[in-house]
Design a protein around this nucleic acid. Structure first.
Lengths: 254, 254
DNA sequence: TGCAATGTCTGTACGGGGTACAGCTACCCA
DNA sequence: TGGGTAGCTGTACCCCGTACAGACATTGCA
């Protein structure tokens, strides 16, 4: 915002609103009522303003959402991560944990993060930081870019599904009488169809943990590690290495 | 449940609509116009019916969406996966590829998948299938459940972010004059802030591929493999290993 | 054969959402 | 001191989800 560099000459009355106020309101709404609660009207009402005032700061609702996601992911930081004297893997793990914490604190934004295109500033922030770390680790640009994409994908994907899985809408409202029969029958059929998965659901939930998240992350980091041997082949390599699959022949890819 | 089994006595006129017709319409709408295009009114219009008719078959719009996601993920199948004589890893990879194909064909549903709670029939279908495979592979129930969760998380997360990343909204519509200055300034600031990531974006995109997806999957499968040694510790293991920020040396080798 | 019950679909309407358009007001600068 | 402009409001439009009440066809049963 310092782009108005030289003369911060402002016209009009002093702002009673600011982007941050609107985003704060949006975030609190999302925290309370889920992703859809961040309506333009709701945000405006929360800051005590007419709905249209929002359009002075954001082009449309999606711009508000993007800015919200941006601010949230951009704020992911941590002492360990910022400390360049730390081992690079520890820094990445620190970032991953902080990201997880951040999204777990605001589960409602997860769908918004996922729905946002990956090339926005928010993802770029993450990429940028990872790229720095990988450069420190000695990866060349291409390898760093690939590693960055792989990790951002894993981190956001895992955290998103973990958190979104925990974000259940609660018991559904009662069904209208006319449709109740059909749907209850369907529910019963579902339970019949997936007895084992249903039974395992509780077990599964108990094992979804930060440990597991970190474990997967470390497995991927092993492959990224330049000192390791099993970095992914850049696609230039034909199926030889990739198809070498631990006792299984891998099917055709694309 | 099975109560209606004996006499399929129906009253009323023969259905001119069916769930599948509505879901077909919803899917085509999503394919054409993104996740939000599947409005109740739109679906009804596409099948040539009043909007309310939809409520005869689904409790509300979210039920339609859930059924759509359910049908899509439930339909993920493949010859190799179904063939129990195949090595289990090949079967899992086959499922993963088919899932990727399916979602890549219908990118618009990805946000819907992510937004759906993980305990719905759709995810249960995936879990159920993976659990079968893992059981065949000799994993006990708990290990299978953990592995299943890890893989569903990875698969859906990776594919979702890949596909959603490819699902860019295109160039944004022109901004209203009043706000243009502020936003272009912001855009410039963004480009300044993330020069490296911006530059790397194209490179990154070029390397996002099925290969990379499979590579990550295989790394995780290595850990799941009962014949392998480095399965994730079930959380029983204290922090010793985890807090150890291994200074870029692989903690384990395969 | 006729009547009542029931599932399917329509007409209408309400509340809420995004947002375009046209102002009003207070402030800044010339 | 007056024009210009940023910040904000009032109003209005259209789309969306969906509740309510009924029209209609089909069926089971008397």
């Amino acid at each position: 915002m310092e782009a108005t560099s030289s003369t911060p000459k402002r016209r009009g009355p002093p702002r009673s609103l600011r982007e941050d106020d609107l985003l704060d309101a949006a975030l609190s709404l999302v925290d309370e009522g889920g992703p859809e609660a961040a309506s333009v009207r709701g945000i405006a009402a929360r800051v005590g303003v007419a709905p249209n005032a929002v359009y002075t700061y954001f082009r449309d609702r999606s711009a508000v959402i993007r800015a919200l996601v941006d601010r949230l992911l951009g704020g992911v930081d941590h002492d360990v991560f910022a400390d360049r004297s730390q081992p690079w893997r520890a820094r990445v793990e620190s970032l991953a944990l902080e990201l997880r914490r951040q999204l777990a604190t605001h589960p409602g934004v997860v769908p918004l993060v996922i729905a946002s295109p990956l090339d926005g500033p928010q993802a770029l922030t993450l990429h940028e930081r990872l790229l720095e770390v990988f450069a420190d680790a000695g990866l060349d640009d291409v390898a760093a870019a690939r590693a960055s994409y792989l990790l951002v994908t894993y981190m956001l994907g895992s955290v998103a599904l973990d958190v979104a899985g925990a974000l259940k809408p609660g018991p559904l409202p009662p069904e209208p009488a006319r449709v109740a029969a059909r749907h209850s029958a369907f529910a019963a059929a579902s339970a019949d169809r997936f007895p084992r998965a249903s039974a395992a659901a509780a077990t599964v939930a108990a094992y979804v943990s930060t440990e597991q998240y970190l474990w997967g992350l470390r497995r991927l980091l092993d492959g990224v590690d330049p000192e390791s041997e099993d970095a992914p082949s850049a696609g230039a390599e034909p199926n030889g290495r990739i198809a070498t699959g631990h006792g299984s022949t891998c099917p055709r890819s694309s």
